[in-house]
Design a binder for these strands. Structure first.
Lengths: 336, 336
DNA sequence: TTGTACGCGTTATCAT
DNA sequence: ATGATAACGCGTACAA
């Protein structure tokens, strides 16, 4: 912009010279390491401000073998991922948890591809956060040996002791949601479950079944959805067509519940009078519709933040709990 | 995992040695630069495969002054950003446009803070993509002088010739949406506009006004929303309370339209019989509700992809059009 | 407390 | 076509 050639990045060398010290000393005050005389600290500090010095990330990485970057891996269809308010909240939490650290977030949208694995194993990041309904077990074991990794949601078939994750007790949470339906006097309760190859799918339907079993009720009224609105809608149709006597549904996600409610509305079935529905997540979707959704709340933002903090802890070399189970609660609204 | 100490990253040096050449030569074949004898290429290539060599990003950056990273800046409330399907599609497009490049995406969620500016100006990325309804003019001029930047949406008050952006012709698009309402015989057409400090807000309401003016109709039935469902709902209430004779609404985003339709439903006003509504975006939200939304489609995914391709072009040093205006179209469904 | 000197893994310049 | 060798900007033993 100016006539003289723009000098982009002042180096440590220049800062040191300006402060009348050596690079090493300047480096020390920047990293707050060992002891430096107050006078020198002041000199260097002001030189930094004067020159508007910004450390060169690449050089720093090369020297101390830290990238100061962490990957956010999304092994999910991108559109579906970002379309789900649950993930939006997770990401929000993650960015909160990271905002006063010096780490940068690298988005890995490609899914658990070879390219992604290579990237993660190539020493390009110091750690990884995996956000997905189904972090493939293969993917997880491929990277978690070489890199600190924190996942949202327990692994499906792997030993839980081998991985760091934050989750809720999906089974217990689903059970409480179903028990809520029971407490409302519902007798023929079905469920719209998540895919059986995802922990959130199997655990929540297990919780639903437990509640019913303990009440001495049958656990056959089940249909699968894929955690989308459309999937919830078609599952609801299946349910209604197969068991017309249904009077309650526990739905494994709010998004699917929205789809289900749409079908109920189309068929003129009143909620909650004829059929009560309980969702899961307490995402914005729960309160956007005409009927506010009674739902099992999971603290998504806090979970994202916790994931970030756990990873930061690992990167600091701390020993931390391998899993963090966050609390859930039933939010009573109008649909049940 | 194994008993012998894991050797993490083979260096170029080792590859060169294994191939019986010098580092320089090995480097050449890796970068496909200048001429190397076929035999040597083969040797090095196989050595790379053998050792599973992955170039060190930091070292490379340090040497050639390229970070091979580009920033995705989101100067928006994180939750709102990811909650909007329009942005989800933009991000999806961006990741598509980048997937067969060697660039990595760095998420800058902090908003247009000083920290973000420092990061961008600190030589940590080679370019930036800004995705927002309102990339603050200040923010833009702060960074666009020092870094290739592509924005989604024209700047509000800056000289358009100074910036690269991809957008639609919001005014023309809104005008066509409004004209559609006119063609349906609507006589008293209002609008729910976006915030007047965002281009998408002012341009779309301008287009609405143009259509009405040309039809000799008044342009006073206007209320502002904030591009959220809730904002659309309260704007609709305002509209109805102020002009009860309304028979059509052009809404500046599908999300707001969803909110508006909720209010209409609550008040027992039938859509499209009593009031027709036309949205904007053609996001998934348009077809999730009970009444499928007639809307002005903008190709969000393609826009994101285009943004990425433009930036890649700039980074290659190509001379490209400063702005790309993508086509829109009215999608006829059930709400109008 | 401070400075010297070397190493981090690559690319780029210059010979050969 | 290939190989030394010097940067690139910084951290850090080691010495002083």
């Amino acid at each position: 912009m100016t006539l003289d050639s723009r000098k982009l990045a002042p180096t440590l060398e220049e800062v040191a010279t300006a402060a009348g010290v050596s690079r090493s000393t300047a480096s020390r005050v920047i990293n707050g390491s060992s002891a430096v005389s107050p006078a020198v600290v002041a000199a260097v500090t002001s030189a930094i401000a004067e020159l508007n010095y910004i450390p060169n990330r690449a050089a720093r990485s090369l020297a101390n073998r830290q990238t100061m970057a962490i990957a956010l891996v999304v092994p999910e269809d991108t559109k579906r991922f970002f379309g789900d308010p649950y993930f939006a909240a997770i990401v929000d939490g993650i960015s909160r948890g990271l905002e006063d650290s010096d780490y940068v977030l690298n988005l890995q949208l490609a899914g658990p591809s070879q390219k992604a694995i290579r990237y993660l194993l190539g020493g390009n990041v110091d750690g990884a956060l995996v956000a997905s309904h189904h972090a493939g077990d293969h993917f997880l074991s491929a990277i978690s040996g070489s890199l600190p990794v924190v996942v949202n949601g327990r692994p499906l078939n792997l030993d839980e002791q081998d991985h760091y994750f934050v989750d809720v007790d999906n089974a217990a949470a689903a059970q409480s949601g179903t028990e809520y339906l029971l407490s409302k006097g519902r007798k023929r309760i079905g469920t719209i479950a998540g895919p059986p190859d995802m922990p959130a799918g199997v655990d929540r339907s297990a919780g639903w079944a437990t509640a019913l079993s303990e009440a001495g009720m049958p656990t056959n009224r089940l249909a699968y959805g894929d955690f989308t609105i459309g999937g919830g809608a078609s599952a609801m149709k299946t349910l209604l067509d197969t068991w017309p006597d249904l009077d309650g549904v526990f739905v494994a996600s709010d998004l699917m519940a929205v789809g289900a409610m749409g079908v109920l509305r189309d068929r003129g079935i009143s909620v909650p009078d004829e059929i009560s529905v309980v969702g899961f997540d307490d995402s914005p979707a729960a309160t956007n519709g005409e009927i506010k959704l009674t739902t099992v709340r999971q603290p998504a933002t806090e979970m994202g933040e916790k994931m970030a903090r756990m990873l930061l802890g690992l990167l600091r070399g701390e020993t931390i709990e391998r899993q963090c189970i966050m609390p859930t609660s039933v939010i009573e609204r109008d649909s049940a």
